[in-house]
């Protein structure tokens, strides 16, 4: 039983106050959530997303917006090496979400990946249990572009729930063997991790339910 009492916690401020997040926390978070929801409900189809703020580099506004909209003290966040190397990134995320930043990918509910080329195996993150497949991680991968995605782009052919017929996307930079990794993730179903590609101005969802091959 918890006491509900009238103490207002005084937040402890870090040495340098991190920059602002959503201009309007309520509607900003709602709009970003809807973009992410649409993206996961329609795998491969980009959903427009405007963050409206600038996080510390190399964190991109879109990836940061997803985390600010969805994370709080209940969702440990894992940062990949390029993000972990910049203390301002963790400070920014902690300040705006209160989420613990963890170093063990197996302890994460959300993972932020600035360099998908160097990302760990998908199974390094929680994939849930047969009883509770939802107790699994959501990975946010920063990509520099969709469709016209440059040399390290991969092209994927998608089928499954949320996809009318088939969908094709190109995005990058992403690991060349991403389709194989996603297929392995699909084989765990209903266990597995869910991916969100954060591109400039849009997000693309790759939930575990999607059947992915190169193409």
């Amino acid at each position: 039983m918890h006491m509900v009492c009238a103490i207002t916690p005084v937040p402890t401020l870090p040495a340098a106050v991190p920059g602002p997040g959503f201009a309007d926390p309520v509607f900003g978070a709602q709009a970003v959530f809807r973009a992410v929801m649409n993206a996961l409900a329609r795998p491969g189809r980009p959903a427009a997303l405007v963050a409206g703020f600038t996080p510390p580099v190399p964190l991109t506004p879109e990836a940061a917006a997803v985390v600010l909209a969805l994370c709080d003290h209940e969702t440990p966040i894992w940062l990949d090496a390029p993000l972990a190397a910049v203390p301002e990134v963790a400070a920014f995320l902690r300040f705006h979400t209160g989420a613990p930043v963890v170093t063990d990918p197996a302890a994460a509910r959300f993972a932020l990946i600035a360099d998908p080329m160097g990302m760990p195996d998908l199974a390094a993150f929680p994939t849930g249990t047969p009883d509770y497949p939802d107790a699994s991680a959501t990975l946010v991968l920063q990509v520099s572009g969709l469709a016209d995605a440059g040399t390290d782009a991969v092209s994927l052919h998608l089928e499954g729930p949320g996809v009318k017929g088939a969908e094709r996307i190109a995005a990058g930079p992403l690991p060349a063997d991403l389709a194989r990794r996603l297929a392995a993730n699909r084989r765990l179903f209903p266990r597995g991790v869910d991916l969100i590609l954060a591109a400039p101005g849009a997000v693309v969802g790759l939930p575990r339910s999607t059947l992915v091959r190169e193409g």
């Binding site: 978070a29 709602q30 959530f33 992410v36 929801m37 996961l40 409900a41 909209a69 969805l70 994370c71 709080d72 209940e74 969702t75 497949p133 939802d134 699994s136 959501t138 729930p161 949320g162 179903f189 209903p190 597995g192 869910d194 939930p207 575990r208 339910s209």
Partner: peptide, 17 residues
């Protein structure tokens, strides 16, 4: 809302669960 939204996203990723 965040807690419910996270549940909705997982529900979409695991249809029918």
């Amino acid at each position: 809302k965040r807690m419910i939204r996270r549940a909705i996203l997982k529900a979409i990723a695991i249809p029918g669960y």
